[in-house]
Simulated assay, not measured.
Amino acid sequence: MQLKGKCALITGGNSGIGLATARRFVAEGARVAITGRDAATLATAANELGVTAIRSDVLDAQARSSLFDRIKDEFGHLDILFANAGIAKFSPIEETPEKDFDDVLRTNVTAVFLTVKAALRLMDAGAAIILNGSMAASTGSSQSSAYAASKAGVRALCRSLAGELSPRGIRVNVVVPGVIETPIWERTAVPPEAAAARERRLQGMIPLNRAGRAEDIANAVLFLASDEAAYVQGAELVVDGGVLGSAAAAPAHRR
């Protein structure tokens, strides 16, 4: 068991990548706490996995304080933080409300920073922080300005935090998912026909010719959280089926 005896917190752990990672961590022996805003999915995850499920909003300062007070009371300390909670909104620049842009940046960057800041009082040398990035930070996809900017911010945040926390023996890395089948796509308010067309277009970009699964990302997060990654610092682990590394091999470019 790679995480036996370790204590982990996963924000947004009640669905998608966060839930898959919680399942993987539990299987590897960790004590796990998850957060989310939906009480029903939190309860389901708690019943299935035996994790500590805490209803909490990453943007709520009081909720953050209460969250880490409870983690301290129940676990005493934290060995692993997976800052996974995030949102996605896609629209052409002319049709993007200022509030939507602000919401994405505040949730995906500001809240990640504040979550890490709050977690540090429970972390000692040997602890691992994993941030959830995205290939959108590099691909230049249309109608993704807010989301891409937020994930580029996550990349920069990781590097700065890694530099600052290295003297304390705390590692900070980013997992970079590609196109992954998760519930986040169902919350983007895209009409079904447009969603199907987007799925076909995205799959044509992927050299491995399939969308990823949440479990693919969970396996990568497990590595970054484990002692096997003890010398990995300030890095991006890309899990995208080859999009960033071998774009010319994608089905859309094959003859």
Rank of each mutant, 00 (worst) to 15 (best):
S150L: 01
K151M: 03
P192W: 14
S65F: 02
V221M: 12
T110L: 07
D124F: 03
E236N: 10
Q62V: 13
Q143L: 13
A247C: 05
L120F: 01
F75A: 03
I129G: 06
F113K: 02
K99F: 10
L114E: 12
L67I: 10
A128F: 06
A248N: 08
K151F: 06
I71H: 00
E28N: 08
D227Q: 15
N209M: 04
E199M: 05
I80H: 06
R168F: 12
P97D: 15
P191S: 12
T52V: 13
V154K: 01
P191W: 12
W185C: 03
L224W: 15
L120D: 00
K151W: 02
P92C: 10
A148D: 01
A119I: 05
V58T: 15
N84Y: 04
N132Q: 07
G86V: 07
I71G: 00
I129V: 12
E193M: 12
Y147V: 10
E95L: 15
L202D: 13
A149F: 04
F25H: 02
A196H: 10
L59F: 01
V175T: 09
N14I: 06
T35C: 12
I10A: 03
G241M: 10
T52P: 00
I130E: 04
R213Y: 10
W185H: 14
R121F: 01
L49C: 02
V239T: 08
A63L: 06
A118V: 04
T110Q: 09
D102A: 14
G36I: 08
R187I: 00
N14R: 08
L202C: 05
D79E: 11
A156S: 10
I17W: 04
N47I: 03
I180D: 03
P177W: 09
P97Y: 13
A43E: 15
A189D: 13
D100G: 01
C7F: 14
S15K: 15
N173P: 09
S246Q: 15
E98N: 11
F75G: 00
F101G: 01
N209Q: 11
D69G: 06
A250C: 07
S226E: 11
D38P: 02
T107G: 02
G50D: 04
E181S: 10
M123E: 05
L81G: 05
F101C: 03
